[in-house]
Simulated scan of single mutants.
Amino acid sequence: MLRLSRRAVLAGAPLLAGAPAAFAAAPALTVYKTASCGCCRGWITTMTRAGYRPQVVVVEDVTPFNNRYGVPFELSSCHLSTIGGYVVVGHTPPTDVARLLRERPKALGLTVPGMPLGSPGMEMPDGRREAYATLLLLPGGKTRVFAQHG
């Protein structure tokens, strides 16, 4: 049985007190995906571990959601999410989503087109990784590099 001193408990209390508030403050993440996509489940798991609270909506096709949020076909992926007034497309790292929400740029959101090996949800058993960029999606289908990975 683990026994902690009163001093140890009191020293750790401020750290524990802030944890629930931090998770409660995380904006809702709605994920639109098809039933058959396994890599989407991997991305959702990554986002959950990073402290987000994904609500999954299973759809027949994500194309109508790409159209609704102004995501051109060439910048689309197998799933699309909304969070904090932004769209997040594909296997975007949770750190990029956090930065987006912190900086609040004038943009539609973020996209990681395609399915780069080693991106969240696309991890390979042998550790292979591709270099890829997270793109800031601007109105009219324009983009600029938001972050580089790998």
Score class of each variant (00 low, 15 high):
20 P>A: 14
43 W>M: 01
112 V>W: 01
128 R>F: 10
115 M>T: 09
35 A>M: 09
121 G>R: 06
108 L>M: 06
95 T>V: 15
92 T>D: 06
97 V>S: 04
60 E>A: 15
109 G>C: 05
32 Y>Q: 10
61 D>W: 09
147 A>N: 05
13 A>R: 03
66 N>Y: 07
39 C>T: 05
53 R>W: 13
126 D>Q: 14
91 H>A: 12
90 G>Q: 01
11 A>D: 11
26 A>E: 14
91 H>P: 15
75 L>T: 10
25 A>D: 08
90 G>H: 00
1 M>C: 05
55 Q>R: 15
31 V>I: 07
81 S>F: 03
128 R>L: 06
103 E>P: 00
43 W>D: 03
81 S>E: 07
109 G>R: 00
87 V>A: 08
125 P>E: 15
123 E>M: 13
127 G>V: 09
41 R>G: 02
106 K>Y: 00
74 E>Q: 15
66 N>L: 07
127 G>C: 12
71 V>I: 12
24 A>H: 05
104 R>T: 11
5 S>L: 14
66 N>A: 11
92 T>W: 01
99 R>P: 04
130 E>S: 14
2 L>R: 09
149 H>R: 12
106 K>R: 09
139 P>G: 10
67 N>R: 14
122 M>A: 08
73 F>L: 09
97 V>P: 02
22 A>V: 13
26 A>V: 13
68 R>G: 11
85 G>I: 07
131 A>D: 11
130 E>A: 07
38 G>V: 04
137 L>E: 01
60 E>D: 15
96 D>I: 02
53 R>H: 15
78 C>E: 04
147 A>S: 12
129 R>P: 07
44 I>E: 01
15 L>F: 09
82 T>Q: 07
95 T>P: 05
144 R>P: 13
42 G>N: 03
59 V>F: 04
125 P>N: 14
42 G>W: 00
112 V>E: 10
34 T>I: 13
1 M>Q: 09
32 Y>W: 14
94 P>N: 13
147 A>R: 00
130 E>K: 10
114 G>T: 14
49 R>L: 15
50 A>R: 09
45 T>A: 12
21 A>D: 06
9 V>S: 06
12 G>K: 01
63 T>P: 00
37 C>R: 05
97 V>Y: 00
63 T>S: 08
51 G>Y: 05
134 T>N: 13
59 V>R: 01
85 G>K: 01
143 T>F: 12
15 L>M: 10
141 G>R: 03
33 K>Q: 10
136 L>I: 04
91 H>G: 14
100 L>D: 04
6 R>M: 13
38 G>L: 04
102 R>T: 15
49 R>I: 11
146 F>I: 08
98 A>K: 06
65 F>C: 05
109 G>Q: 00
137 L>M: 09
39 C>W: 00
